[in-house]
Design a binder for these strands. Structure first.
Lengths: 218, 218
DNA sequence: ATATTTAGACCGACTAGTCGGTCTGTACTA
DNA sequence: TAGTACAGACCGACTAGTCGGTCTAAATAT
């Protein structure tokens, strides 16, 4: 790994993600960001048109990553069930790497100005569309129950996942892997048809009888 | 219904919910709130200690209502499945009545000062605890699958529901009733044990074969 | 090899404007 | 007369963004 000196721009982005997540966009001044990394306001405005543009940058780096990962998960497999599970799986990594970004993304998107907001919203829709496509295709192949409107199913899944940023703590007793496993199990049971349940079973929570006896909820 | 003249305080709260939801707490000035209802800053600060207290008021009126409704749903029934369904059902009403409050509640809770934030967080936990209690009791009675950690199940449900405020539009093609029905179906299938599935079936999405043929996703 | 020019990254004092909150005055009520 | 409810001018703290200037390092000239 080549030891590249981080640019001021990158240092500003890194610092601001942390600060925005901690105290919120409006409670973090430009002054404080540059102070935090030992830079100046001049340096800041040399790299960014506005504080707003910085917020956009933070949003974009995150959502672009999520789209890329989701699309890759889609392309890598060829059945709806496998694709869905792979997409749920990628979230594990996203949460572990980008937790601060996620918080900023969902709490501060309103602070984006009109123009930036439009771009981000388009990308957010793109992410949802990939998931919705998987659901729709699964309904056509009769892997997923067709009696559930796919828009609602999609948003149910998105909600379950996205809400995690509100309560998941990296220092807590639950790992992101466990959570993803349980989510996957719940979602599959909820939407997979009886005839396709066999393929789905391999992705579900396994439990040997002896474990079941002494199971303790955390 | 007695025609009571609305107090200035109430008018301020009503106006601020709308404005906060539209533009966010930080983008709505006290000046604009009082202008909106034809009042003055003096009137505002006669009724509220600070802008912050107003935000607290908005939060409190909402979360208190949700807790009350949830607790009533719990008390009204005596089995975990019925209780869970009733709690999910109350959300229909909450969303129809309090949509602006909900948005403010989830987007602006960070803007609350320390002291108010603590109170609201406590109440938010209270709401979650009622739901978690239902899940735990259901696991004990073997109505709900005990192999799923009840904290994750609880947060999965909370997420699915709460996220709705992000995409549900009263003017859209979906009604809150439809959404609640699909959510209920998905959640029950996800967590109800095989042996209890019969009791749950009555709460699930029904579909006659002839409907199924021509079903179109919205 | 050394001197000179120049681009552009970065600095920080300063400005212009904003907004939460106060204070004094007034109208109305009991 | 005392108290309450409100009006609106005003204050002071704060902050996004500016602007003239500095410093470094690479390109070019001598």
């Amino acid at each position: 790994m080549p030891m590249v000196k981080k640019t001021l721009k990158q240092r500003i982005v890194d610092a601001s993600v942390v600060l925005f997540q901690q105290d919120g966009y409006h409670n973090v001044t430009v002054e404080r960001i540059v102070e935090y990394i030992g830079a100046s306001k001049g340096g800041f405005y040399h790299n960014f048109k506005s504080k707003d543009e910085l917020l956009y940058e933070v949003h974009d780096v995150f959502i672009s990553y999520v789209i890329k990962q989701s699309q890759e998960a889609y392309d890598k497999y060829d059945t709806p069930i496998k694709r869905l599970c792979a997409m749920l799986q990628t979230l594990t990594q996203v949460f572990d790497v980008y937790q601060s970004h996620i918080t900023v993304f969902y709490e501060e998107s309103r602070s984006l100005s009109e123009e930036y907001s439009a771009i981000i919203h388009k990308k957010r829709d793109q992410y949802r569309d990939i998931l919705q496509k998987v659901i729709e295709e699964g309904q056509q192949t009769k892997d997923f129950r067709a009696e559930l409107p796919c828009t609602i199913v999609t948003m149910a899944i998105v909600g379950m996942i996205n809400w995690t940023y509100m309560w998941f703590k990296q220092t807590g007793p639950l790992t992101m892997e466990e959570i993803t496993e349980v989510f996957t199990d719940m979602i599959l049971r909820a939407i997979v048809t009886d005839q396709a349940m066999e393929e789905a079973t391999q992705f579900m929570v396994k439990m040997k009888p002896e474990e079941q006896a002494g199971f303790i909820n955390v």
